[in-house]
Design a protein around this nucleic acid. Sequence first.
DNA 1: CGCAAATTTAACCTGTTGGTTGAAAGTTTG
DNA 2: CAAACTTTCAACCAACAGGTTAAATTTGCG
Lengths: 109, 109
Amino acid sequence: MASLDIVFAALSDPTRRAILQMLLEDDMAVTDVAEPFAMSLAAISKHLTVLTNAGLISQEKRGRVKWCKLEPDALRDASIWMQSFGQFEAVNLDAFEAFLERELPGNAE
Amino acid sequence: MASLDIVFAALSDPTRRAILQMLLEDDMAVTDVAEPFAMSLAAISKHLTVLTNAGLISQEKRGRVKWCKLEPDALRDASIWMQSFGQFEAVNLDAFEAFLERELPGNAE
DNA sequence: CGCAAATTTAACCTGTTGGTTGAAAGTTTG
DNA sequence: CAAACTTTCAACCAACAGGTTAAATTTGCG
C-alpha cells in the first residue's frame, strides 16, 4: 500500500489529476491519455508511473498497447486521513449528505 | 482559496501532516510545534509557511509568540475533489457511514 | 523480413523542496 | 538599557520533480 506521502504527492499535480478524471470514463491507452496534453509522450509516461507507484492506477500491457485503469481504492487512505479531522467534517456536512442521497437512495434520512 | 495543487502538496509531507494532527488538539506556538521534531526551528518555520500558503493553518502574532491555528476548511476542496470519484465512494461506504453515525446521531439510517 | 506504431529509457536541464547554519529582527523582562 | 526569548531571513546545499529530445525496445502487420 502506497504511503500517504506518495498518494498526496501524486495528487498534487494538475496533469495527473486530469488523467485520473479521464480514466473515470474508461480505461485508456497511453497514447490516448497523452493526446489532450501539450507535452511529450515521455512526460505523460512519467506521470503514469507516478500514478502507478501511488497505486492510483494500474497498467496492463496487451499487445503493444498498455492500458491504464483507475484504481480508486488508493484514495481511501487519503480520505480516511482527512476524516480524522473532526472539525473538518462538520464543515463538509453538506457534501457528505449530498453524497449519501445520491449513493444510498432511500436509506439516509 | 489555495489551489488543489498547493493543498495536496502541503499534505504530502509527513512532518506537515503531523503538525496538523498536533494542531487538532489546540493552538500552538511555533517553538512548541517544533519541539517533538528532530529538525531546526527554521525548518519548522518553513513548514508552517507552506501550511499557511495552503490555507490549512493560520498564524497570529501576539507579543513575541506566533500562534498557529488549524483551518480545516481548506481540506474541503480536496475532499470534494475526491468525492467526484464515484467508483471510489462505493469502496469507502463504510467509512462514510461510520462518519454519519457519529456526526448525525439519530439522523442517518 | 522490414517498416510502422506504442511505449519506455537515457541523458540532460531548470526550478523547487527540505534541510542546514548563522545572523537579524522584534518583544519582553530584569 | 541590556540580556534573553521567539521567530524569521539569507545563503547555501543535496536531492528531486517535471519537462525536453533522441534513441531503444517491443509488438503488429503487409
